[in-house]
Design a protein around this nucleic acid. Structure first.
Ligand code: FES
Ligand code: FES
Lengths: 151, 151
DNA sequence: TTAAACTTGACAAAAATAGTAGGATATGAT
DNA sequence: ATCATATCCTACTATTTTTGTCAAGTTTAA
């Protein structure tokens, strides 16, 4: 029941992206890579996927990079994870492909449905914007020499 | 974010076990294997683990098998999954081993905590007894030639 | 023109999963 | 006794997934 690095790195990446692109400029892979300490090539794959799924958009050429495709308030953690992992279901007792012989009598599906719904509820109710704000608060507490920190 | 066959098969196995051992007799691996259509050898591994984790107990020798170590009401789905999977956490941003550089500033932990709690809530509030009962209901509706079906 | 940056596809090492095989041990039945 | 039935245990292997890497492009601001 583990979330792979795709989802873990990807979420960190898009938060980093949101955090560093608020003045309207694009953020390049390299800078994310350095701040988050994730391989540049690997990160590229992940961000590419976020782009094809419509969560971020790219600005090509020199001085380019990536920025959010829509406001951070409109992007949930669930959006990000689904984009990267394909599906966030713990078990997809699926429909056509019966995972066990008597799928119609199988009571474990009741459990998997509960679990899937619980997970979705947890990730769909948190937005990138909220995490960005939390991140700011922590930074504020972390850095003692920050002048602009109004308490 | 997939649950492995260990958890999926294992839950079906213990439900089968509970369902077929209510008259007090032990249930052997072979019979579970046939009913659930899971490899005997593989199933053995799983049930053995359930035993070492104290969820079922074994009766050795001819005519032996397995039975629940305690009443089905006292065994939750979470107990079973944890026994088989080790941990059901989606992400274990753990403690000593910092999964990212600035673990103390990392806001993704907030998300993973939410997800983990959601999962635990989902699996810890369902007991094997409840599933057994559901299973009975379904069987009852499924089999038209069952004499003993009141209603 | 040049260098910064994205774009793409193929590839590969490493880890986890899923399942097998074969024997040892215990015990009820004959 | 001994045999059949069943758990017990370890080790091994094949497959798949994960986790990346690499190299050769393309686009565009400066
Ligand atoms: S239908 Fe999916 S495990 Fe039974
Ligand atoms: S502390 Fe686990 S991802 Fe940051």
């Amino acid at each position: 029941m583990k979330l792979s690095t795709k989802g873990r790195y990807g979420l960190r990446a898009i938060i980093d992206l949101a955090l560093n692109s608020e003045n309207g400029n694009a953020v390049c892979i390299q800078s994310i890579s350095e701040r988050q300490n994730i391989s540049e090539s690997y990160l590229e794959q992940l961000v590419r996927k976020l782009r094809t799924e419509g969560l971020v958009k790219s600005v090509r050429g020199a001085g380019g990079g990536y920025e959010l495709a829509r406001p951070a308030e409109k992007i949930s953690v669930g959006d990000v994870l689904r984009a990267l992992e394909g599906s966030i279901e713990a078990v997809s007792c699926g429909d056509d492909e019966g995972c066990c012989d008597q799928a119609d009598l199988c009571v474990t599906r009741l459990v998997w449905d509960r679990v899937n719904k619980a997970i979705e509820g947890a990730v769909d109710t948190v937005t990138i914007a909220q995490l960005v704000e939390e991140s700011r608060k922590k930074q504020c507490m972390g850095k003692v020499d920050t002048k602009s920190c109004a308490n």
